[in-house]
Structures are given as C-alpha cells and as structure tokens.
Computed example of a mutant assay.
Amino acid sequence: MPVISTADLSIGYKSSSIVSNINLQLRTGRIICLLGPNGAGKTTLMKTLLGRIKPMGGNVTYTQTSIEEMAAAIDHPSFFPYLSGRQNVQVASAFWGVDVDPESALNGVGIDRAAQGRKAKDYSTGMKERLELCLAMLPRPRFLFLDEPQNGLDADGMISLTATLRAYRDAGNCVVISTHLLHEIQGVPDECIVIRHGRAEQITDLTGVNIADLYHGR
C-alpha cells in the first residue's frame, strides 16, 4: 500500500518553525481532513509533503509512491481565468500528457455543459472550486491535496463533492483536505490530523467523533 510517512518532521518558513515533531502516516484508500485555525500550518504541511517546501527538520518518506504521483489544488487559482472551463481542461491535459474528454471531466465535478464554454473568471466561487478539483484530478494522482475545497459550494455542491471524493478514495487513492467548514465536512473524512499549538495529532478512527470537538480541542 502506498504510504507517505513523516518522522520528527518540523515545518515552517526561513528560521521560523510552525509545527514540530510531526509523526504521521498517510495511506491510500483514505480521506484525511486537516483541521486547525488559520496560520496553524495546514497549507505548509501540505506543501512540505508535496516537496514544494523543504522541511526544517526530520524526514518525509514515500513508500511505493513518489512526488510524481501527487497533485494539489492549493495555490488558487490554478486555472487560466480568460479561458473557458473546457479550454482549461484541454491545456492541463496536454501539460500532463493525458487523454481526457473535457466534457466528461467537467461533468464529473458538476460543471454542466452550458457552463463549459464560459470563461472561468465568470464562474461562481463554487464553480471555480469545482474547476480546481477537476484540474487537480486530471493526472489521476495517488495522493490528492485540496485546500478548502468546500468554499462557495451550496448543499447540492457539497453532496456532489462528497460523492466525488469518496469515489476517488474507493478507487484506491488518498485525499487530503483542509477545511474550516466543520459541520459540512462531518461524516466525510475517514480520519483527521489536528494541528494546533505547534503540534500535529493524527486521529485514525472517527467513529462517534464530532469534528468540531476535535477542532476546539475537546
């Protein structure tokens, strides 16, 4: 089973450490939620695991996988605002060297055919989030990192997102999401990583657990 492991990992920027002594295991076939207040280090941890930021200490180990099998929607926007949704998929597909039908890809994240020809800059906030998700999924990464993917989604959008993430997990992949929409995400992740006070704690069994209680440290 592909796994990303950390051992005594410390993350931060320049000489300032944000989170220390991080010992985690991210396995495929799981949806993992990163919880923590703004500035706690959620995005920094994602970027470190993706190899975009060098750790300040400790190690990240990739077992039966590599950075090439990872993708993310973190630095928004990742799309070209003056291209249509369809054109964005075509450009990204060419970049990744994958053969993808743009209409099917966009339909898969709930962007209907009528919207696919519109410029991405004219999409609603929720539609932009769906486009970000679509583009991140194009190379079919084993590990998919998403920063606040629920932003701007209505109830139907949340249902669609949940179904998409679960299907992606069930195909043998790992999805890591950060969020502050605690009630909306309840029941979606299989486990959580809680980051607060410079420490990270992994909770692998969420049976009967209220995510809001984890966030507030109860």
Rank of each mutant, 00 (worst) to 15 (best):
I74P: 11
S93G: 14
N59L: 01
I67D: 01
Q90I: 12
A72P: 04
Y82E: 02
E68K: 15
N88H: 01
I74G: 14
S84Y: 02
Q87L: 05
E69I: 07
P81Y: 01
S66T: 10
I53T: 11
R52Q: 12
T63W: 03
F79K: 13
W96I: 05
H76G: 05
S84F: 03
I53P: 10
P77D: 01
L50N: 06
S84H: 09
P77F: 02
M70R: 12
K47D: 01
K54A: 10
S66N: 06
A73K: 11
F79I: 08
V109W: 00
G85K: 05
V89W: 02
M56Y: 01
L50F: 10
D99C: 13
N59S: 15
F79A: 11
A71S: 15
G97W: 07
V89Y: 05
I74E: 01
M46N: 06
G57V: 03
S66I: 07
Q90P: 06
M56N: 08
V109L: 02
G58V: 07
R52G: 14
D75G: 15
S66L: 00
R86W: 05
T48R: 06
G108W: 00
L49I: 10
L83S: 09
V98A: 04
K47C: 08
V98R: 11
F80D: 02
A105H: 04
M46D: 03
D101A: 14
S93V: 05
N88M: 00
A72L: 00
G57H: 09
V98N: 08
V100N: 05
Y82K: 13
K54C: 07
G51P: 09
L83T: 08
K54T: 15
I111L: 15
I74N: 11
R52E: 09
L106W: 01
K54G: 07
K54Q: 11
V98P: 10
M46E: 02
S104C: 04
Q87D: 14
M70K: 07
S104E: 03
G58Y: 03
A71H: 13
I67C: 07
N107E: 01
A92L: 00
L83C: 06
R86C: 03
E103V: 09
G110R: 06
T48W: 04
Q87N: 12
L106K: 13
A72V: 01
A73P: 07
Q87E: 14
A72M: 03
L83G: 13
E69W: 06
A94V: 02
F80A: 14
L106R: 08
V109C: 05
V89T: 08
D75E: 14
L83F: 08
